[in-house]
Amino acid sequence: MSLPAARPIRLRVNGETVEGQVEPRLTLADFLREHLRLTGTHLGCEHGVCGACTVLVDGRSVRGCLMLALQADGAEVVTIEGIAARCPVRGEAVARGEATLSILQESFRDLHALQCGFCTPGMVATAHALLAENPAPSAEEVRLGISGNLCRCTGYVPIVEAILDAAQRLREGA
């Protein structure tokens, strides 16, 4: 059995231009993890249910396991490793190396919205996209917004609180 030949792609990942030769069957998540060694993007089911592999593609939350790397050709991809630098409040400080966490990430820490941390990158990416679209969500909107991301540790209650907390802090510009 011969596999289709690898093809070139060129995209931006966390603000940097990246080129690669990828097999057509390679998923975006595997490209990020294996080719770029950005292992913050996790694989929990590889069939699009758990949301652990969620990354931002052109600003929208996307499941890295359901998108092929080839489909990301020309796209702007942001992973957990680059998300803090996209924080409207802390972004510049993070880019200068003066801070490490975005407001959203700080709220996750302060409200104990993570335990094992495996769902966290996908959860943060989903929440980041949610807040970009809706800066003042209700609790109900947050619950629905992250209902495609599974967490087995926290029971979601503190995650919802952390996202609401971050929304408020972002609105206040803190």
Binding site: G40, Q105, F108, G117, T120
Partner: peptide, 9 residues
């Protein structure tokens, strides 16, 4: 928490 939140875990 920091390593989990930044993808460094």
């Amino acid at each position: 928490d920091e390593r989990f939140l930044t993808g460094a875990a």
